[in-house]
């Protein structure tokens, strides 16, 4: 499944300072849907190069990291349970950096 992932607010520093990643992620199992929960662990394994604790805490994003799926706050789509579809755009923004 083709997805566009964007890291902002300083999170890009955790993945070689690249902001936009076009990636191909498959659901956990055949016939299952791809959820944010699975995507997060995929990102952690495949994209985050350093200090993963800045990105995740437990099985979700660290408090203070905003997530948008297709420009919509993931708190409206069920957070970890949000189901992703082909060509979806997911944005992660840290609010923790200086202002």
């Amino acid at each position: 499944m083709q997805l566009t992932l964007e890291f902002g607010g300083g999170l890009e520093l955790l993945c070689d300072s690249v902001k936009i990643h076009n990636v191909n992620v498959e659901p956990q199992a055949e016939g299952k849907k791809l959820t944010m929960k699975h995507l997060l662990s995929w990102v952690r394994t495949n994209l985050i190069k350093e200090r993963p604790e800045m990105f995740m805490k437990g099985d979700t994003v660290r408090p203070g990291v905003l997530v948008l799926v297709n420009d919509c706050d993931w708190e409206l789509s069920g957070q970890l349970e949000t189901v992703l579809e082909e060509k979806d755009a997911v944005v992660f923004i840290s609010t923790l950096h200086g202002g």
Binding site: G8, D71, T95, H97, G98
Partner: peptide
């Protein structure tokens, strides 16, 4: 504030 900046595509800098 972060949502506003993101939606409005405001140009800001964020590095520690």
């Amino acid at each position: 504030i972060v949502m506003y900046a993101y939606f409005k595509r405001l140009d800001y800098f964020s590095t520690e």
